[in-house]
Design a protein around this nucleic acid. Structure first.
Lengths: 233, 233
DNA sequence: CCAAAAGTGTTCATCGTACACCCATGT
DNA sequence: ACATGGGTGTACGATGAACACTTTTGG
């Protein structure tokens, strides 16, 4: 029988967990994990998370979690979904978790990541076993990232303000798990007209150097209003 | 400060709400709402929902809610997301709600819908104001339905086993809020090879009558394995 | 016989895809 | 000088979009 009565309904714990993606200087797509400093599963790898206080917003809680482990504010974040299975957490407590997936730009912020909490970047292909249902969360987050990257310009959230086309292509290859044709890729992205070319070149990764570009938010929003759709595949 | 301690974390109420879509004999896309029989907001329209007991799965709870109001089991359902805003429910209690969106086939099951609970179908264009944040849920569910309908054959969940092409096109027009070209539409869908044509005709809606078709799950799954993608736009 | 909905093909433009060579430079 | 990654153009096939007339039959 369904309970619809406030006074008779029973409460439970609510947590948030954050699936944090980053993109390297070495052009690797990575996931940020923490080494648990408490039981249960002390010493194992896990997503970063924490309990939601009834007085706080879940988004605010997720943001706090991110700040605690990365020192960063204003990170791109969206809710994945609620993970609710009975017994997904400890055996003794019912804990539902609301998973958020977040994109951060390692290049500009790497320094800030709090080593003190055992946070560490893992290439998405080399993720260790995680506690609870965190592997499911990661799997779903990877799928979501793929879908989003194909239809919204969120790839740029993972890149520094200035980036090169080859860098962007590597990122898309990793997210989409393909190997796009570089000629077709750069034509498509440049033809959209949402990138601004700079005079400056990136000279660390290659000898010839590659031109820097910036994402042009104003142009993008202008195009959006005219019914433009960002699509990469 | 983030709470990571089980014994110090505070609990809250967790509910489910169901956004139920149906498709009429009259080719109208509809939403199933209930008239609240209790405070707060007694007498107003709302999604159907209920509290989750810590011992029950949220999916099971959502299924029970659906059974209670429709008499139906085995309904297509997927989680939309968690709605968590502080104050989204009553002022006094923190209640987070996990929203599920469900597709049911009115044609075959209409009789079963429990009138006794005040459940009623509303055309998606004529939805009354809803309590709490239920309108947001509906809005997001409509968007989700659109996305899903474009890329997965879930439209068929809304139709009886036997349906006609014009019926299917009406459904897609309503979901996608377009007016597709009927020649292009039927070619696209028939060329996929996932519909089985029957000898029988539907004779109520038009004088000429339209041939019935059935969705061929086996064929669809076979195609899926060969890398086929269902796409309608 | 007429109104209302079903059914059916072709053409054209666009877009996606495949593909290979030269360039710049640090070592 | 050579190795490494950056940059660029073309041709072809596939796909999507536009478009109008005939058929059936209940009333």
């Amino acid at each position: 029988m369904i309970q619809t009565n406030y006074s008779e309904a029973k409460k439970m714990l609510v947590a948030v967990d954050c699936i944090v993606f980053g993109f390297d200087q070495d052009r690797k797509l990575k996931l940020l994990l923490v080494n648990r400093d408490r039981e249960p599963h002390k010493g194992k790898w896990s997503l970063m998370g924490g309990f939601v206080d009834p007085e706080n917003e879940t988004e605010a809680t997720a943001n706090e979690v991110l700040r605690k482990f990365t020192g960063l504010d204003e990170i791109y974040m969206e809710q994945l979904r609620a993970f609710t299975e009975v017994g997904r957490d400890t055996d003794t407590e019912r804990v539902i978790s609301i998973a958020y997936f977040a994109l951060i730009n390692i290049a500009e912020h790497d320094k800030k990541i709090s080593k003190e909490f055992g946070a560490e970047w893992f290439p998405v292909g080399e993720i260790p076993p995680l506690i609870f249902d965190h592997d499911v969360m990661v799997k779903e987050a990877k799928r979501r990232l793929k879908v989003r990257a194909m239809t919204k310009p969120i790839g740029f959230k993972l890149l520094p303000k200035k980036f090169t086309i080859p860098q962007l292509k590597s990122l898309y290859d990793l997210i989409l798990e393909t190997d796009l044709d570089k000629r077709n890729f750069s034509r498509r992205i440049l033809d959209m007209g949402v990138l601004r070319k700079l005079d400056e070149k990136e000279k660390h990764f290659s000898k010839k150097g590659a031109f820097y570009y910036e994402f042009d938010d104003d142009k993008y929003n202008e195009l959006l209003e005219r019914g433009f759709n960002f699509v990469i595949k």
